[in-house]
Simulated scan of single mutants.
Amino acid sequence: MLELDFNQHIQAIAYQIPKKGNDFNGDSFYMKVMDDYFICVVADGLGSGEYAYYSSNAIRQEVKNNYDKEVDVLIDSCNQVLKDKRGATLSILKVNFLQKTFTYSSVGNIQFVLSCPSGRFIYPLPVLGYLSGKPQKYRCETFSYEKGSKFILHTDGIAIPGIKSLVSSASSVEEISNHLEDYTKTGKDDLTYIVGQLF
């Protein structure tokens, strides 16, 4: 499944595919572009199959219903909706176009890297563990970005060698997505990625 979203400030492509043989994808994502900000979430339900989907989709729905909230509020409410579910890892990215900043928070093994045209890389480290409705520490960090910066956000279902080189050298999000296609064919796990460029 491929989804494209854009305005004059951002172009983003999301792609996901379930583990080979599974009807349900244990990963979920949501992204929304507004005039002054962009928000996206990627969630990876523990394990795979139907119950992993229920966990990750609960996060997707929570962000979809409350996309205007701040990242720290969202990640806490996402944790709450996972009570009595299997659990999930997640990353939330919210970009403020007017301030040229983004806020990022992650729990678990979802990876994020942003490359600025100046050669600066931003690679926030996630908090270890996963969300399950139990008390959890979070870390929300805000960074500035440069016009033309590109990013990749992805679950552990796709291994991307040389990710920093790819995100800095590719000329467009389409080129990055085309390059990633070779790494989406193993079928060993659910996978999701979002690639974007900020203008």
Rank of each mutant, 00 (worst) to 15 (best):
A159S: 15
L82F: 08
V167H: 02
L191Y: 10
P124K: 04
N178Q: 08
G26H: 04
D36G: 12
K100C: 09
E3M: 15
G129R: 06
L198A: 13
V42W: 00
F6K: 13
K185F: 09
P18H: 02
S177A: 12
E174M: 09
D23Y: 15
F6V: 02
L4M: 14
F24I: 07
G87T: 03
S77Q: 13
D23I: 15
E62D: 13
I158Q: 00
K150Q: 10
T103P: 05
C40P: 09
K20T: 11
E62A: 13
S106M: 00
S106Q: 03
N66T: 07
G157F: 04
S172M: 04
E175T: 10
A14L: 10
S172Y: 02
N65F: 02
V95I: 15
K83L: 04
P18Y: 00
V42P: 09
A88C: 06
L131C: 10
A58I: 03
R60M: 07
G119Q: 14
N25W: 02
D76G: 04
Q136S: 06
N57K: 06
I13R: 01
S172F: 03
S55E: 04
R86M: 05
K64Q: 10
I92E: 14
I13K: 02
T184W: 03
E50R: 10
N57S: 10
A12K: 05
N96E: 02
A88V: 03
C140G: 07
P126G: 01
R120I: 11
L46H: 01
L98K: 11
L4T: 12
P124C: 03
P126H: 09
Q61T: 11
S144R: 08
T184F: 07
K185M: 08
V71K: 05
Y138S: 14
D27M: 06
G21F: 09
I152E: 09
R139I: 14
E50S: 09
P126Q: 10
H9V: 02
Y30C: 11
G47H: 06
G45H: 01
K164R: 13
Q16A: 10
D72I: 08
Q197E: 15
I75R: 00
G129T: 02
N109G: 02
I17S: 14
R86G: 03
G133P: 09
I122R: 00
Y51D: 12
S91C: 15
D35I: 12
Q16N: 11
F102L: 14
Q99R: 10
E141A: 13
F97P: 01
E70G: 03
A43I: 14
R120W: 05
L4I: 14
D72A: 06
F102N: 03
L46Y: 06
Y123P: 07
Q80D: 13
C140P: 08
K185L: 12
F112R: 02
S165Y: 15
P124F: 03
N109E: 14
P18E: 00
D44A: 11
Y37R: 15
Y104G: 01
G45Y: 00
I39F: 06
Y30H: 11
T142D: 06
D27Y: 01
D76F: 05
K32V: 11
V95G: 01
I163E: 08
A14Q: 04
D156L: 04
Q11S: 15
D27L: 05
F29M: 00
D182T: 09
G196K: 12
